[in-house]
Design a protein around this nucleic acid. Structure first.
Length: 245
DNA sequence: CTGGGGATGGGGCCC
DNA sequence: AGGGCCCCATCCCCA
């Protein structure tokens, strides 16, 4: 299930402490091959490359420096993402996953053949046990990614380049900041068609719309009670409220 | 304890 | 390939 950070839910209860991360100066390293450090091969684990935050920009410029002795070229197409492998199987099927193109290996579904195809390359070297290749590992956390782009995206969650001009809070992506800014401006562009409520976030409107629905789509498998949100169902099951846990 | 709103994060998809 | 948007999911808090 979990989106990477959600995995923490089962092993830790708190969100990443970004304040710690913020204290780490982000220094753009000069483009040096030594900045890429291959870690030791641990039992059953593939060798991974630890990418310094500062290396990335340099690496992206590396096209202009073909003479640079870069590490062994990584076969991005066959790398797996640990994201894909982390506990996803525990994920209850979401409504959106009732799509047509399903991965026969992990049963994850996609709405397009392209999406499925992209996903399936991750199985070429499943991060699980038979991984033989490399992954892009974040220097700041244990996370690994199958592509530089995915890692770069992830690293933004450490560097938090999008800063709110009002309160200084930092975000990993511009649209996250945009949503946050609405908390200052009070802007609520997403209106409910059924009542007068409006929301700053589309997801919250979607959740709200559930309250107008007679059909609650999250059902406890033990007591058949239904809930409008998965989080409510989780709370219900974790508390053993159905009396059969 | 339950239900709902607010805020937020990350992957997928599309351009 | 990268950026932006969408969707999903969760946590926190409060009524």
């Amino acid at each position: 299930m979990p989106r990477s950070f959600l995995v923490k839910k089962y092993f830790a209860t708190k969100k990443p402490n970004y304040s710690e991360l913020e204290s780490q100066a982000v220094v753009l390293s000069p483009l040096q091959p030594s900045a890429l450090k291959e870690t030791e091969i641990t039992a059953g684990c593939p060798p991974v490359i630890v990418w310094d935050v500062g290396v990335l920009p340099a690496l992206y410029n590396a096209e202009a420096s073909p003479s640079l002795e870069s590490p062994t070229p990584l076969d991005l197409s066959s790398l797996s993402s640990s994201e894909e492998d982390e506990c996803r199987t525990s994920d209850p099927p979401s409504p959106a996953e009732a799509d047509l193109f399903q991965c026969l290996e992990c049963h994850k579904s996609y709405s397009s053949p392209a999406g499925l195809s992209r996903h399936q390359v991750s199985h070429c070297r499943g991060a699980s046990s038979r991984l033989v290749g490399r992954a892009f590992r974040c220097k700041h956390c244990p996370k690994e990614y199958g592509s530089l782009g995915a890692l770069k995206m992830h690293i933004r969650s450490h560097t938090l380049p999008c800063v709110c001009p009002t309160c200084g809070k930092a975000f990993s992506r511009p649209w996250l900041l945009q949503g946050h800014i609405r908390t200052h401006t009070g802007e609520r562009p997403f209106s409910c068609q059924h009542c007068s409520r409006a929301f700053a976030d589309r997801s919250n409107l979607r959740a709200h719309l559930q309250t107008h629905s007679d059909i609650k789509k999250y059902q406890c498998t033990k007591c058949s009670r239904t809930f409008s949100r998965m989080s409510l169902l989780h709370k219900h099951t974790e508390m053993g409220s159905c009396g059969s846990s």
